[in-house]
């Protein structure tokens, strides 16, 4: 069994940390470049089992494994909004045998705002798989249909309440509020399951949604896309990328630890591209989870990430 693999990985990680801490050395060249993948690949998912990202990863792992010719072992390491799993992969041996399937929010937000043991340069972005459909939403019968309408309504008096689902979603909405000079109070909720009753029960005036609103067509409406572009389900609603030049990290990506050899990344990227065309995977993501399958290769993805980070820094500076 692959016990020895894990343990070797752990020891290698440990050795790496020690080496880096004492001498500032980087990892030596992996000995078996070219033979990738030489053993089963561990795909770390930093979220709880059963969620939509984890479900997606499990189906994707099957397709990717078939493509690479080695089984992919999905390993869930939930905690701290993805930071626990990201920390683990950042410290793993950079040989492509330990990779991470995560939302870019988990890779970008913690290093900019919290004390964590990885930074913006800890990962090589191999490929984007899909895009989360993040939005500002309101009840269907709310007296405003767009973000501009909401802002105009807010200026008529009285502060409005909104439900957020994370420090980052709160920061972005507060950024808009500060820019527009309106008073919005964020009520933190523990995810879509708590946000929906708050919104539909009229406890809050509007809410941030990570995509759950797609299940409530007719009960909720989208006021703005929080991504850089527009959402597939509401192509007529402008995004904050258009309006304010900022966007929330929205990509679901596969990353490898920094220092992974170029040819390994290329092999992986090619296999991922083919795997995203797998029929089972496409059916699950597009028809059942209602996300778009959106493959983006390493170079274009890195440029996209750089742009996201520029906006993110602006938001962090203003709100934190």
């Amino acid at each position: 069994m692959s016990h020895s693999t894990t343990r070797r990985g752990l020891l290698a990680g440990l050795a790496l940390t020690v080496a880096a801490a004492t001498a500032g050395l980087t990892a030596s060249e992996p000995a078996f470049a070219g033979a990738y993948p030489a053993k089963p690949v561990t795909l770390v998912v930093p979220y709880r089992a059963g969620g939509s990202t984890e479900t997606m990863a499990r189906v994707f792992a099957k397709a990717l494994g078939a493509e690479l010719g080695q089984p992919i072992v999905v390993r869930t390491r939930p905690g701290a909004g993805g930071a626990v799993g990201a920390t683990e992969v950042a410290a793993a041996a950079p040989d492509g045998h330990t990779i991470l399937f995560a939302a870019t929010a988990s890779l970008l937000w913690p290093p900019l705002t919290q004390k964590v043991e990885y930074d913006l340069n800890s990962f090589i972005y191999v490929a984007q798989i899909t895009e989360y459909q993040q939005a500002i939403v309101a009840k269907a019968d709310a007296p405003y249909d767009t973000l501009a309408g909401l802002i105009a309504h807010s200026k008529q008096g009285g502060g409005l309440n909104y439900a957020d689902q994370s420090a980052m979603s709160r920061a972005y909405i507060d950024f808009i509020a500060a820019k527009e000079g309106v008073e919005w109070t964020g009520i933190p909720t523990k995810g879509g399951g708590e946000m929906v009753p708050f919104l539909l029960g009229g406890k809050v005036d509007f809410a941030w949604s990570g995509g759950i609103h797609n299940r409530y067509a007719g009960k909720m409406k989208v006021l703005a896309s929080m991504n850089s572009g527009r959402l597939i389900a509401s192509p007529d609603t402008p995004s904050i990328g258009e309006t304010y030049g900022i966007a929330m990290p929205s990509q679901a990506v596969i990353v490898a630890p920094a220092g992974t050899p170029r040819d390994v990344v290329d092999t992986l990227q090619a296999a991922i591209e083919t795997a995203t065309r797998d029929a089972d995977f496409a059916d699950l993501v597009e028809n059942k989870l209602k996300f778009p399958v959106k493959f983006v290769g390493a170079t274009a993805l890195q440029a996209d990430i750089d742009q996201t980070v520029t906006g993110l820094r602006k938001v962090v500076e203003q709100t934190q």
């Binding site: 069994m1 692959s2 016990h3 693999t5 894990t6 343990r7 072992v73 999905v74 390993r75």
Partner: peptide, 14 residues
């Protein structure tokens, strides 16, 4: 236990 964890849960115990 170790075998069961691997077979049923695909989890590698440490």
């Amino acid at each position: 236990v170790d075998t069961a964890a691997w077979v049923f849960f695909t989890v590698d115990l440490p």
